[in-house]
């Protein structure tokens, strides 16, 4: 195992972080605006989010680089600034983390599908390789390929990330099929774990999805199908509409209440996705055994 992962896992489960987009919105990012561009235009606000997670007790924090691949950046006229946005994103998190937390950098999907021929394998590989390289240059200690719906795209990102030599976490979204336990393309947790293990992912996991309770069985099945450590960052359920506002009804305490079951099911890294915030991370901290950063 990668030495950094071994060191992290010597005290596990490891507490990671929560959502970034909604936290940036709380700091003025307009709904529908592209968060990653803020690494250049509003670095101080991005740093506030990073610091909020460090202060909440995250041992690993991510970066504001989820959409910073050139394919997605191109939708916002920023394709030429991919390297800069990624490097800056890591630097902001690294500075906020200080000695208290470790920075793994986020890589999300391109939003284009191989299946429909909108992108080619070469396009994907080039975009992810450029992003991974910039994240490594910026000082990331690991890479987190997350919110992937198509295993082929995830594997493309993994192959592009591996030459950096950093440990690579690969997380898929399981929200399709009758039992919401398949990826969009129909892959089961067993298939995902099998193929990603084969492809050499260092950590395998699930994020986003339809709620933390649904990820307990998914976690169990992933864990049973691989020897790699499992990473889980679930949503705070699906949002609902109350008095003209969008809210997630899962409370931090309810969310944290499911964490022991997740850990029991094999999760070695735990945190939150959409709808979670530093309060959720503080709530998870109180779960027995979860290890936090040294704030």
């Amino acid at each position: 195992m990668n030495p950094l992962l071994a060191q992290l896992l010597s005290r596990a489960p490891v507490l990671t972080d929560g959502a970034w987009g909604t936290e940036l919105q709380a700091r003025g990012l307009k709904p529908g605006d592209f968060p990653d561009g803020w690494n250049l235009t509003h670095p101080e606000r991005v740093a506030e989010v990073a610091r909020a997670y460090v202060e909440a007790g995250s041992r690993i924090i991510l970066t504001n680089t989820f959409g910073a691949n050139r394919i997605r950046l191109g939708d916002h006229g920023l394709a030429g600034r991919a390297a800069e946005i990624n490097r800056r994103g890591v630097q902001i998190s690294v500075q906020a983390a200080g000695d208290a937390a470790i920075v793994f950098a986020s890589m999300g999907p391109t939003g284009k599908m191989l299946l429909t021929g909108e992108v080619t394998r070469d396009d994907l590989h080039a975009a992810f390789a450029e992003q991974a390289q910039a994240l490594a240059e910026g000082g990331a200690r690991g890479l987190v390929i997350e919110t992937m719906s198509d295993l082929e795209e995830a594997k493309s990102a993994l192959a592009a990330a591996q030459p950096t030599g950093l440990p690579v976490v690969v997380c898929m979204v399981f929200d399709a099929g009758r039992d919401k336990d398949r990826t969009m393309t129909g892959a089961t947790p067993e298939q995902v774990a099998g193929e990603l293990t084969q492809a050499g992912a260092d950590v395998i996991g699930a994020n986003c999805g339809v709620g933390i309770d649904r990820y307990v069985p998914v976690c169990q099945r992933l864990s049973a199908a691989t020897d790699r450590p499992i990473w889980i960052k679930a949503n705070a359920g699906l949002p609902t509409w109350v008095d003209g506002r969008i809210v997630y009804i899962t409370t931090p305490e309810e969310f944290a209440g499911h964490v022991p079951a997740l850990v029991q099911a094999g999760a070695r890294f735990v945190g939150g996705c959409c709808g979670t915030n530093p309060a959720f991370i503080r709530a998870i901290r109180s779960v027995t055994g979860v290890t936090e950063g040294s704030r």
């Binding site: 599908m113 299946l115 429909t116 399709a176 099929g177 009758r178 398949r182 393309t185 129909g186």
Partner: peptide
């Protein structure tokens, strides 16, 4: 699709 026999790739083709 309802029965988990088909997923998005099958729908698309």
């Amino acid at each position: 699709f309802e029965c988990n026999e088909y997923f998005v790739p099958e729908l698309l083709i």
